[in-house]
Design a protein around this nucleic acid. Structure first.
Length: 264
DNA sequence: ATCGGTACCTGCACGC
DNA sequence: TGCGTGCAGGTACCGA
């Protein structure tokens, strides 16, 4: 579930871990471990102190100073929890000099990896949507022929936007999800750029969207789902014009839009 | 180089 | 009650 606002909320909720030492780490459900066996990973982490915790798009990068980087992606159902019970879907247990951090992930689409250098997959991502300039945004937009919804999901275009915020931003900008990215004209690029910023900023302030089970590391739910205007509202009336919200597939993902407010 | 489709995994809601 | 189907915040990888 976690997109940029949810991951940002999680990162803020584990800020207290900076300065803590990892005493030991234990892994089960090895699917989430990338490149490396659990013993090697545990050995790389043991005794290291958390120097900083940063978010890059949907990635959480925990710097261990000279000890490299612990890189965590929450996938669809990943959770980081400060304390709590070890359950059926707990795949990582980080014991700290004070407290414990658990990695839970029902669908196991998330990942945990260690890297000595700054991780290449993170370095390859596009810019942060809240930091990039409108000029860079439009330059990049014009080079891409794909449909705008698919482009917003592409992490090399902008990092951190997922299915919820792509749909919500397109609605606010009045742009149809199937519109060609390179052919967006007039005021539309500007409207989209502003809509992305507004949606993400508001969602972060709301602690993210809790659709079914998302919570931050303290177990707190977000409440931006109460302000979704199109996402998972197919068949319901548009809050602007009353038309029925429709759902189409784009890049194999559900895309929700108002056929009247978002013309092709 | 880009793009679209598929695979990965578990749980839930729905209709029969 | 059970069974089949479709759907769910994600990315990686394949061939065209």
């Amino acid at each position: 579930m976690p997109e940029l606002p949810e991951v940002e909320t999680v990162v803020r909720s584990i800020a207290s871990l900076v300065g803590r030492r990892i005493v030991s780490a234990e892994f089960r459900g090895l699917r989430v471990l990338r490149g490396g066996n659990p013993e090697r990973l545990a050995a790389a982490l043991a005794g290291r102190r958390v120097a900083s915790i940063q978010r890059y798009g949907k990635f959480i990068v925990i710097s261990l100073g000279r000890g490299g980087y612990l890189v965590i992606h929450l996938g669809m159902t990943g959770r980081l929890l400060l304390g709590g019970e070890v359950g059926k879907h707990t795949h990582g247990i980080f014991t700290l000099d004070r407290g414990v951090l658990l990695y839970d992930d029902i669908r196991q689409f998330g990942s945990i990896e260690w890297s000595g250098e700054f991780p290449a997959r993170v370095a390859r991502l596009g810019p942060e949507p809240l930091e990039t300039s409108f000029d860079d945004f439009t330059r990049s937009l014009k080079r891409r022929k794909t449909r705008i919804k698919a482009l917003l999901l592409d992490q090399s275009f902008l990092r951190g936007i997922g299915n919820i915020y792509a749909d919500e931003a397109l609605f606010r900008a009045g742009i149809h999800p199937l519109a060609s990215a390179s052919r967006l004209g007039g005021a539309r690029p500007r409207r989209l750029f502003d809509a992305i910023r507004a949606v993400l900023t508001e969602a972060i302030a709301a602690g993210g969207s809790s659709i079914s089970d998302y919570v931050d590391a303290g177990g707190r739910r977000g409440f931006f789902q109460l302000r979704h205007r199109v996402y998972q509202r197919a068949g319901e009336p548009c809050l602007e014009c009353g038309s029925r919200i429709r759902r189409v597939l784009v890049a194999q993902r559900s895309s929700h839009f108002c056929p009247r407010c978002q013309r092709r």
